[in-house]
């Protein structure tokens, strides 16, 4: 395959960026999108140019590191996949592909396609945990009976890999799908109940502090989410926050 790539290049957080155009010729349709980027970078290095910086780690769709806004969609075309699971057979020979970083004030660009997603870490730190007494007789988690439907819903929320596709996709750069998944995975379970009110208030507050936008319920996040996180989580966050902020002392 021969492709024309339009890639966002930016040297550093404060530098001015621009779209650079590259041609790549020997691309197999069996390559993943990241392998195609590796081919591009090899060519750039051979030419003595600076390779394109992009995030990647597990390359099997479970770590949430790879990002990239490809041809107008987070993780490119296709549903339920990350960029490493996107294959070049999804494109045609001769295509022009736009590759841009996640765009959000809360995700400042570090270099090229790499953005700083530590805002997500700070949201989790503000309440995405349960306090467990570890001094001695730790309880077996399975000692508490949990309805199957609750366990399943909590697990579905917990599959969020924190990749940031929801923020990148949302026209408002809202992080509500992410935050609500992290709230739901705990509040649905008995172990998460004691801190549920504080958790939702603190995590929403931190989300606001980071400068994410407001959800307008377009639902684009849930469509582009590689893990299929549902908008039901956002509704759960909405009602828990409403209840918590009206009843919390």
């Amino acid at each position: 395959m021969k492709l024309t790539l339009k890639v966002w290049r930016q040297n550093g957080p404060k530098e001015k960026g621009k779209i650079a155009t590259y041609q790549v010729d020997d691309i197999s349709e069996d390559m993943s999108f990241l392998e195609m980027m590796d081919v591009l970078n090899n060519e750039l290095i051979e030419k003595g140019e600076d390779p394109v910086a992009f995030d990647h780690d597990c390359r099997e769709g479970i770590c949430g590191a790879c990002s990239m806004f490809i041809n107008g969609e987070a993780h490119g075309p296709g549903r339920g996949i990350t960029t490493c699971q996107l294959h070049m057979r999804s494109f045609n020979d001769g295509d022009t592909i736009y590759i841009e970083p996640w765009r959000a004030a809360a995700f400042p660009i570090i270099k090229d396609l790499v953005v700083n997603r530590s805002a997500f870490d700070r949201i989790i730190q503000s309440g995405g945990f349960i306090s467990v007494n570890t001094s001695g007789n730790t309880l077996d988690a399975n000692a508490i009976p949990i309805p199957k439907s609750d366990a399943d819903a909590a697990f579905d929320a917990a599959t969020c890999i924190g990749c940031g596709a929801c923020v990148a996709t949302c026209k408002n750069s809202s992080a509500m799908l992410f935050t609500s998944a992290k709230i739901s995975q705990l509040s649905l379970l008995p172990q998460g109940k004691p801190e549920a009110k504080e958790r939702v208030v603190n995590m929403v507050k931190q989300m606001d502090l980071e400068g994410f936008g407001n959800c307008t319920n377009t639902g684009a996040c849930a469509v582009e989410c590689p893990k299929g996180i549902s908008l039901e989580n956002v509704a759960r966050m909405n009602r828990e926050f409403l209840l918590a902020s009206t009843t919390k002392s």
Binding site: K6, W8, I19, F69, N71, G72, E73, Y98, E100, R103, A104, A105, A106, T169, K171, N172, S173, S174, G211, F212, G213, T218, G219, A220, V223, E224
Partner: peptide, 15 residues
């Protein structure tokens, strides 16, 4: 919340 816009957007596929 989004000071820099995307050069290429395809919102019609997801909303």
């Amino acid at each position: 919340a989004r000071p820099v816009k995307y050069a290429y957007e395809k919102p019609q596929v997801n909303s």
